[in-house]
Amino acid sequence: MEIKNVTVFGSGVLGAQIAFQTAFHGYTVTLFDIREDLLEDAKIKFEQFKLLYQQDINADAADLDAAVSRISFTTDLSLSVKDADLTIEAIPESIEIKKDFYNRLGAVAPAKTIFCTNSSTLLPSQFATETGRPERFLALHFANYLWKNNVAEIMGHAGTDPEIFKEIVQFAKTIGMVTVPIYKEQPGYVMNSLLVPWLMAGLDLYRNGVADAQSIDKTWMKTMGADLGPMAMGDLVGMSTAYNVTQSYYQGTGEEVWKERMDFLKANFIDKNKFGISTGEGFYKYPNPAYKNEDFLK
């Protein structure tokens, strides 16, 4: 099947990026979210992406305008998938939310449509049944700033059709991704199997009073030559995602340390509306966080 029409569910940090990158590479894209104001926020993000694409990958302004023209917006689930060949879901990292969503999506999507989830930590098999088409369901996971950190991880489950798996690997290549096929279900794929322990190590140092956020990040940035430390990355990823990840790991493992992390994030960030960059405060205050100061590493 030739993929032409792609629907992206969720206009948050990664959903907006996935929609823009897919449209930039010539596909017709529909972006769905549950509220109009969220879609309006995505339109603002797209204007920011234009500047970043020019700056980071020397993209042509006319091509960027054309990409935006290929994106439509809707809060109507049925309408969003009426012509969809492929859907990519980037909604909150909650098994209950995803199960409910796929139950509704499976009832309205055409039989031809392939379903992909961008879930960071959940396994496709955990909600494959709810899709109503488990053989046409798999994970397609992207990195943040995907136009330059252009890695896509493709992970099926035991019931995924191998031909569908190959088709999504090929699709990911057509939108400029370096593809990483995952041959066995793994929570966190390759990327987050490496990233989550790093983020949690930073969080543990912070919540246990070992060091403050700036010291933790300075140590990592200076010794590893990195642009960001784990605390700044936490703000970028967002506290709601971090919270959902700790909740998911706690539910999956039952280990008390995940509950402690989850409770700490809720009490100190979620309940105080400190969601990171999106709300102007997390470990740092925005739009001018300390780690961007020229003398931060001095």
Rank of each mutant, 00 (worst) to 15 (best):
L79K: 13
R261C: 04
N58A: 15
I175Y: 05
V81W: 12
D204L: 11
T174M: 01
P110W: 09
E255M: 07
F275I: 08
P289I: 02
Y291N: 04
G156C: 02
T87Y: 03
G252P: 06
I91W: 06
Q214N: 14
G202Y: 11
F9E: 00
L123D: 07
I18W: 05
E36K: 14
G176A: 03
Q247A: 15
N150G: 00
M239A: 06
G156N: 07
T121Y: 12
L64E: 00
V81N: 07
L79H: 13
E96F: 14
D33G: 11
A59R: 01
G280D: 03
S120H: 06
V245P: 04
S11Q: 06
L86C: 02
T113K: 06
I270N: 13
G188P: 02
Q170D: 15
E96S: 15
K112C: 04
A107K: 14
G106E: 05
F24Q: 01
E47V: 07
G280P: 06
T22M: 01
T246F: 12
H25S: 02
F171S: 09
N5I: 05
T22L: 00
A84D: 07
F142K: 08
G280V: 05
K99L: 04
L236V: 13
L138T: 03
K45C: 10
D56C: 08
G26H: 02
E2C: 00
S120D: 08
S193Y: 06
M224D: 04
G15E: 09
L14C: 07
S80V: 05
A226D: 10
L79W: 05
L265S: 05
K43C: 10
P92I: 06
L14A: 10
D235E: 11
R261G: 02
I168T: 01
S69L: 10
R207Q: 13
T219W: 01
S240C: 03
F264K: 10
M239I: 07
A67C: 01
G15C: 09
R207I: 01
K259N: 14
N103C: 07
A143T: 11
M239F: 15
T223N: 12
Q214C: 11
L52V: 05
M191R: 03
S69K: 15
E96Q: 15
C116E: 01
V29E: 09
T246A: 15
A211M: 12
V108S: 09
I277D: 01
S94K: 14
T131R: 05
L236E: 06
N192Y: 12
I216N: 08
K148V: 12
T121M: 14
A16P: 09
L297T: 07
V29D: 03
F24W: 03
Y189Q: 12
K166V: 04
A226G: 06
A267K: 14
A66W: 00
D271M: 08
S120R: 07
D217R: 08
V29M: 07
Y53L: 09
E36G: 02
K272N: 09
G159I: 03
E89V: 10
A139Q: 11
L228Y: 15
A107C: 01
F264D: 04
F264M: 03
M233L: 15
L105H: 13
D37L: 08
E260V: 09
D100I: 04
Q17M: 05
Y183H: 15
W198K: 02
F49S: 00
K298M: 07
F20S: 04
S248T: 15
L146G: 00
D41C: 03
P134W: 08
